[in-house]
Each structure stands twice: as structure tokens, then as C-alpha cells.
């Protein structure tokens, strides 16, 4: 019982957190952040692993379409590096999102991460 209760609580908490997270992400991630800062944050936080020959697949803004970036940010909890994400403030995440979204594969100005 206790065990079940615990699991249920965790499950509910997770669900709530997930729902909240998604809702928050959907609401909060807009492409109106500071994409200059986003570029810096992306390089500092993500590109340490997501580089050619790194521990994670190489990533650049134009690695994904705008829709794909949108989805990634909505559900970053599924990612293996979700713990890293959690270290970032909402503002920083939004700046990063702005940078990636604005320079996505199908954006008007796609960019590689040079």
C-alpha cells in the first residue's frame, strides 16, 4: 500500500510536472528572446557534447526544422540530457530556443553553427 501510494504520488507528480512543463514550454518558448545570448548559451551548454566526434550527435540550428525545435523544447524531458536542461533558467532556455528556431533548417535564415 505504502509502496503503491508512493508510486501513485510520484506518477501524479510526474504527470503534473510533465503537463505543467509542456504547458509552460508551449506558453513560454517564443522566438522573441535574445538570440545572440541564445547562440552563446547553445554553444556553452549544448555544443560541449553535441559536436562532431562528441558524446552526443552533432547539433546546429539547421539540424532541425522550426517545428522540430518546437517539439524538442516541448518535450525535452524525454531527452537523456534533461538534467542539464533543468540547470538552465527559463529565460536562458527561451533565448536558446529563439536562436535555434530563428535559424532552423526551414527558417528564412538557416545557420550552421560555425
Amino acid at each position: 500500500m505504502k509502496k503503491n501510494q508512493f508510486f501513485a504520488t510520484v506518477l501524479v507528480a510526474l504527470l503534473i510536472a510533465a503537463t505543467f512543463g509542456i504547458a509552460m514550454a508551449a506558453d513560454e518558448f517564443t522566438n522573441t528572446g535574445n538570440d545572440n545570448k541564445g547562440k552563446y548559451l547553445f554553444r556553452k551548454n549544448c555544443r560541449t557534447c553535441h559536436i562532431p566526434g562528441g558524446t552526443a550527435p552533432d547539433l546546429s540550428p539547421n539540424s532541425k526544422t522550426q517545428a522540430q525545435w518546437q517539439r524538442t523544447f516541448k518535450s525535452y524531458e524525454k531527452l537523456t540530457c534533461k538534467d542539464e536542461w533543468k540547470k538552465l533558467s527559463q529565460g536562458d532556455l527561451n533565448d536558446t530556443y529563439t536562436y535555434l528556431y530563428n535559424h532552423a533548417y526551414d527558417s528564412p535564415q538557416p545557420a550552421t553553427c560555425e
Binding site: N36, K37, Y40, R43, K44, R47, P52, C113, E114
Partner: peptide, 17 residues
């Protein structure tokens, strides 16, 4: 494809768009 130098330039607060 060329191998890039993955350098990170600081983010300056005083950089305006």
C-alpha cells in the same frame, strides 16, 4: 564538411541587437 573550431565567445550584456 570541415572540422570547426568550437570556440565560445562570451555573451556581453552591453551588446544591443
Amino acid at each position: 564538411k570541415l572540422n570547426m573550431h568550437n570556440v565560445i565567445f562570451p555573451f556581453f550584456m552591453l551588446s544591443q541587437p
